[in-house]
Design a protein around this nucleic acid. Structure first.
Lengths: 338, 338
DNA sequence: TTGTATGCGTTATCAC
DNA sequence: GTGATAACGCATACAA
């Protein structure tokens, strides 16, 4: 232990009340007389009392802790989600214990175990290593964001709709060839629907299309190298056609845009580019990117709503069903498309 | 309360040991016989026991909680710091309760109060609203990163050295006029030394210099507009000179670079640009930015070292002195300087 | 090696 | 309106 803290016992001794009365001062003040309330109030200041929520938790159960496991904070998308979740404190009063997953399943299991030992009331999970079936077996309120979620509640962007918006926009802009660039998302991930959506719209349109779906690597150098090869390939196959390129995220789109500009000195009319996310780079790139905006505040708001309802249901031994909610994204037209 | 948890009492009843023996199984297993250890081990699994660290905390004191107050997660710099701090869990086993400050002093005071009520063992603070003198009055181990820190321990980048490196590099590259662009940092902030360092090197060099130090705004639009005016101003005053521009961060540098390229179609030899931070945008911009790299892993490592030492000292009632540690940054030469 | 009794700082259940 | 007492789940000093 460190410095001895002032407790209800100290206040009780000082004021000649019982600990019970001090407790009531906080939890049911109307049961005290105005005068006695004042006496206790003065004593609290005089003795410099500070509340101890851990003792309260032990006595009555609810920690107001929520655990978060997020893959990384390197991608702006994840940082933005985390920031929005943390901000919900103002509304829900939950405190957040945050872990960064790093895609290692056993590490993440250890994190969950640790979180459970602190009696978290719920868990928000964005990392994708642990199957949702296993997560469901922990029997705590849980909601996922943008990951596989067969057995747990989830909030996802409507990726299919996003891809439809992007692809339709490129078609409307009279592209001769449609291209989608992605980086091997797993089929059970919501983001996989960016491929599905693209493909189905293309097939309905009779416009030729091409999908590059391969691991682009994690570093800027690798991403740049891989995208550069794709650009060369496109130039070789379709030198004169207007190419509509829909990339899986704004980082890829920005790198691709830079490659084009370094090659041609400008963004030629025969290239149209759509990214995904509307992360800051979309605004800050040399030519502002047309992109599919994910509604991050809405995503996190829904996640907190679902989670707090599940927590409420669990406390009151009500049953609660798994909820899957999708948030429609929005096409933001900027300067990389006509 | 929710579902009834299995406790030491249940294990004790089941195995016919006392609660004390069960406790010892965890904290001093060698004091049990191999056979009894096995009996308890089996019972734990059979009854599906899960540890309750909150009860442990109440009984013995240390929560292993550390509070973090960070201004935002929008800037990659802060996300990167947070990610590194969170990762220290692997080494130190501290759990982190994270709050986002948003530059409101009363909100942040409320956060600290909440954190204290959960008996955090230490606090890491990056937001700058609460004066360090007030922070020191909370009498808990505390370390700041890149903020005013007269009365508390701190870890900062050596901003002065960073500015010296940037400015010297521009001088070595034969710039005729040196320019620094900043956004009104407070004088007691470590980042203010980027101005001091620039100015002193310029004065020593006899090369003319110029400082634009004004609020550039928070949105990309405002930053862009303000930087655009500065670019016009420079073109008017120094049309033929080689201009060496040192900007306060990579975002500004990237926006400035884009303005130049949109104006001239390329980065002319008469412009040399140095940013600060080495955030991802420095690598990903259309011309990779020369920048001053902040050593974020080192910053956070030192912060955790200092904090854990202060926590150790406090637990053992040792005195501990305030420590101010500076981390030298590194000049990363890329393509915006010769 | 194991058990008893007590404490950690609250809240909850009865009394009065 | 107020108080005594027993929880909450674990750790620890002291006994045996």
């Amino acid at each position: 232990m460190t410095v001895k803290k002032v407790t209800f016992a100290d206040i009780a001794r000082y004021t000649n009340f019982s600990k019970t009365t001090i407790s009531r001062y906080f939890n049911n003040p109307n049961s005290l007389t105005e005068k006695n309330r004042q006496i206790i109030s003065d004593a609290l200041i005089k003795l410099d009392y500070h509340e101890n929520k851990l003792a309260k938790v032990l006595a009555q159960g609810s920690t107001e802790f929520i655990g978060i496991i997020i893959p990384n904070l390197y991608l702006h998308y994840y940082s933005a989600i985390l920031e929005n979740i943390l901000n919900s404190y103002q509304e829900y009063n939950y405190k957040f214990l945050v872990f960064v997953g790093h895609e290692d399943i056993n590490t993440e299991r250890q994190y969950i175990k640790e979180l459970l030992s602190y009696n978290i009331e719920g868990l928000i999970i964005l990392s994708h290593t642990i199957p949702s079936e296993e997560l469901a077996s922990y029997k705590i309120p849980i909601v996922s964001i943008e990951r596989e979620s067969c057995y747990i509640s989830s909030v996802d962007t409507d990726n299919y709709l996003g891809a439809v918006q992007a692809t339709s926009h490129l078609i409307k802009n009279k592209c001769d060839i449609l291209v989608h660039i992605n980086s091997l998302p797993k089929e059970d991930m919501p983001a996989f629907n960016r491929i599905t959506g693209f493909e189905e719209v293309c097939q309905d349109s009779d416009i030729p299309y091409l999908i590059y779906n391969k691991d682009l690597g994690a570093t800027h150098e690798n991403i740049s190298k891989n995208l550069s090869h794709m650009l060369d390939d496109l130039e070789e196959k379709y030198p004169y056609e207007t190419k509509g390129i829909f990339l899986a995220n704004d980082t890829y789109a920005s790198v691709f845009l830079n490659l084009i500009i370094r090659k041609f000195g400008e963004l030629p009319d025969k290239y149209q580019i759509v990214g995904f996310d509307d992360s800051p780079i979309a605004t800050e790139s040399i030519v502002p990117l047309t992109t599919i905006q994910q509604k991050i505040p809405t995503l996190t708001q829904y996640a907190m709503e679902i989670l707090s309802q599940e927590i409420y249901a669990r406390k009151n031994k009500l049953s609660s069903e798994i909820v899957h909610r999708e948030v429609p994204p929005v096409l933001v037209k900027r300067e990389t498309t006509h």
